[in-house]
Each structure stands twice: as C-alpha cells, then as structure tokens.
Design a binder for these strands. Structure first.
Length: 156
DNA sequence: GCCAACGTTGGC
DNA sequence: GCCAACGTTGGC
C-alpha cells in the first residue's frame, strides 16, 4: 500500500528544480529539526512512498511537483557539522537524533497548485496544510487527498 | 516586516 | 510535570 506525504521546502534554499538537478535526481532531505516530522520519516516512510513537494516562504506558495521516497533510515549528516545551522551539539554519532530519507524527483507540474487554490478545495479543508496553521514541515496526505490534489495540479 | 500559531526550553 | 518565556515558522 502506497503512502503519501507532503514535504515543504523553501525554494530559495532548495527548490524542486534543485532536486531535479541532483545526481540521479535524488537527494537526502536534510535539515529537518522537528520531532513530529522526524518521526514520520523514521517510523513510517517506506521506499516507494509518494511525496508532493511544496514551496513555502516565497512569492508563489503551493505544490510544485511530485517525488518519491528512494531511501529510508539515513542519518542527517548536518547534525554533526559545527558550521551548519542544523548542527545539534546534543546529538552523537553513536545515537543520532536526526534521521532523514532520500527523495527522488518524479515530475515538476506545469503550473503550481497554489495554496489559495488548495484552500478553496472543499474536500481538502482538513489537510494539515490548512489546519494547524500549516506549520508542519512534513505531513501525511491521505490517498483521497492525494488523488484530488494531483488531478487539480494537472488541470491547472 | 508584521503577527499569529506552534514548538521548545528551563526554572520551579 | 507545569507553564511562562522565548524562538521559529510561514502566510500575507
């Protein structure tokens, strides 16, 4: 059974185009420092899960494309790099606090599915993006929501 | 840059 | 373990 997720990223730091330009179109999703998001990656994600890529904190916010989980159970290397803003002095290689998955670019939509449009979709009003103030960096998406959002993205 | 909504921290 | 203070996120 395929699971579905939504990953936020700030395109100024790492956009979907950056992901598409990586070797094999794959990159470890480092820098997540939120326990709920980490737990999704650590405890629930499986290779083959599908993930919307969402651009936040930018001019055009919304879902911009699709990726899939290509590897799980990776240790985020930035937690051990003192120069990184994601350095965590309380973490140790013996017992790493922050894990990550690797994502592989699948497609970039021709048009962004804007947050405004998403908020206007009645069946989507319960999604984490709209609830909880939209502050969770990785969130689950139900199969029903996934299909609705995907078809909305394709027809826009 | 503002501000509301969360999450984390630390004193007690 | 409570909760106030503080920091961060993210849309606008």
């Amino acid at each position: 059974m395929t699971q579905y997720w939504l990953f936020k990223t700030e395109p100024d730091a790492f956009s979907i185009d950056d992901l598409a330009a990586c070797p094999n179109k794959r990159e470890g999703w480092d820098g997540i420092r939120n326990y709920q998001a980490r737990n999704f990656m650590r405890d629930q994600m499986l290779v083959g899960d599908k993930a919307f890529i969402y651009h936040s904190s930018c001019k055009d916010v919304g879902i911009v494309g699709l990726a899939k989980v290509s590897q799980t159970g990776l240790v985020d290397p930035l937690q051990f790099e003192p120069e990184s803003k994601y350095f965590d002095p309380k973490s140790s290689p013996d017992n790493p606090r922050w894990v990550m998955v690797e994502l592989e670019h699948v497609e970039t939509f021709n048009n962004i599915l804007s947050l405004k449009t998403i908020k206007n979709m009645p069946s989507i009003s319960e999604i984490g993006l709209v609830k909880k103030g939209g502050r969770l960096s990785i969130m689950p998406v139900s199969e029903n929501e996934f299909q609705l959002l995907l078809s909305a993205a394709k027809q826009s």
